[in-house]
Computed example of a mutant assay.
Amino acid sequence: MGLYSERIFPWFLERALDSPEIGAHRARLIAGVAGDVLEIGFGTGATLPHYDRAAVTSLAVVEPSSGMNRRAQARIDALGWPVRIEALAGENLPFADASFDHVVVSLTLCTVADPPRVLTEIWRVLRPGGSLHFFEHVASTDPGRRKWQDRFNPLQRIVGVGCNLNRDTVASIRAAGFSLGQVEQQIEPAFPFAAYMPIVEGVAHKPAPPAKGQDSGPITR
Rank of each mutant, 00 (worst) to 15 (best):
E86S: 12
V170S: 01
M197N: 14
G181H: 01
P209F: 12
A190F: 04
R117Y: 00
L155M: 14
V183L: 10
Q149L: 00
V159H: 09
A78T: 07
A208I: 10
T57N: 06
R151K: 12
S66I: 12
L13S: 13
S58H: 09
R71Y: 10
I30G: 02
P198M: 07
D97E: 13
L109A: 10
T108N: 04
A16P: 06
M1I: 09
E121F: 01
R124V: 09
P94I: 12
P154C: 11
A195G: 10
R71G: 04
S179F: 02
S131M: 13
K147G: 10
E121L: 04
K212C: 13
R174H: 03
G213V: 11
A27C: 01
L180P: 01
S179Y: 12
P10T: 15
G41H: 09
A176M: 09
A78S: 15
Y196E: 00
L29G: 08
G177Q: 01
G130F: 05
H102V: 15
G217N: 03
A195N: 11
A78M: 14
F193A: 11
F193G: 00
E63H: 10
L119E: 02
G217P: 03
F9C: 02
A98L: 05
H137E: 04
C110P: 05
L126V: 13
L107P: 00
F191C: 08
V33H: 07
A72W: 01
I219D: 10
I158T: 15
K206Q: 14
A195T: 11
P218N: 15
I8C: 08
N69K: 08
E201S: 12
R71F: 03
V62E: 02
G80W: 07
R174Y: 11
E201I: 11
L88I: 12
D77Q: 08
D52F: 03
P210M: 14
R145W: 03
A27T: 11
H205S: 13
D215F: 06
H205N: 10
G32D: 06
P154Q: 14
A208P: 04
R53I: 00
R15C: 07
L126H: 08
K206D: 07
R71M: 14
E91Q: 13
S106C: 15
N166L: 03
V138D: 02
E91N: 07
L126E: 12
R124L: 02
P189M: 03
L93M: 05
L126W: 05
I173S: 05
V183Y: 05
G32T: 06
A72E: 06
C110E: 09
E39Q: 08
P128E: 15
A194N: 01
A175G: 01
V62P: 07
D97V: 04
P209S: 10
T141D: 13
R174T: 02
D18H: 00
S5G: 02
G162L: 04
A208F: 11
I122Q: 04
V170A: 09
A78H: 05
E201F: 02
R70A: 09
R7S: 14
A175I: 01
D97H: 08
L109C: 11
L126G: 05
S140E: 08
F191K: 04
E39T: 13
P64I: 07
P218V: 15
L132S: 09
I199E: 12
G2H: 14
F100M: 09
V125Y: 13
A175F: 05
